[in-house]
Amino acid sequence: MSQSAAAAAPAAVEVTAQDLKGHGVVFCPNPKMKLWSGHPRVFIDVASTGEGKCPYCGTVYKLAPGTVLHGH
């Protein structure tokens, strides 16, 4: 992978059960993102497959290894 391709790759965010809202979703942009990089808030299901990708910015949200989801 070239250096420019690595720089252009979307960020990956590891989430735990405590980060999930409602029925196993996270929202993007997340509170740690800079305000200037904002886009409309979208809810991304990570409980079903263990990860999800934001359709706007490409950020990938992944469940942390060993995360146990109750009631999912």
Rank of each mutant, 00 (worst) to 15 (best):
M1L: 07
S2W: 00
S4M: 10
S4T: 05
A5P: 03
A5D: 15
A5H: 12
A5I: 07
A6G: 11
A6H: 03
A7E: 13
A7W: 08
A7M: 08
A8P: 06
A8H: 05
A8R: 13
A8I: 02
A9F: 03
P10K: 10
P10Q: 05
P10I: 00
A11T: 09
A12R: 12
A12E: 13
V13Q: 11
V13W: 00
V13Y: 00
E14Q: 07
T16C: 07
A17R: 03
D19F: 01
L20H: 06
L20K: 07
L20P: 04
K21C: 12
K21I: 14
G22V: 02
G22P: 09
G22W: 09
H23N: 15
H23E: 15
G24V: 06
G24N: 07
V25K: 14
V25L: 12
V25C: 11
V26D: 04
F27R: 11
C28M: 09
P29T: 03
P29C: 07
N30P: 07
P31G: 09
P31H: 07
K32Q: 04
K32G: 10
K32F: 10
K32A: 13
M33K: 00
M33Q: 10
M33H: 06
K34V: 14
K34F: 05
K34T: 12
L35Q: 09
W36I: 09
W36S: 11
S37N: 05
S37F: 10
S37T: 15
S37K: 15
H39W: 09
H39E: 04
H39F: 10
P40Q: 09
P40T: 06
F43H: 13
F43S: 15
I44W: 01
I44C: 04
I44N: 01
I44S: 02
I44F: 00
D45Q: 15
V46M: 05
A47S: 14
A47T: 07
S48E: 11
S48N: 11
T49F: 03
T49H: 10
G50C: 01
E51T: 02
E51Y: 10
E51F: 02
G52K: 01
K53N: 04
K53I: 08
K53P: 06
K53H: 06
C54R: 01
C54K: 04
P55G: 13
P55F: 07
Y56D: 11
Y56K: 00
Y56W: 03
C57H: 04
C57V: 02
T59P: 04
T59V: 14
Y61W: 04
K62W: 00
K62Q: 14
L63W: 01
L63Y: 02
P65Y: 00
P65D: 13
G66Q: 12
T67E: 06
V68L: 06
L69G: 05
L69F: 05
L69R: 06
G71R: 10
G71Y: 00
H72L: 07
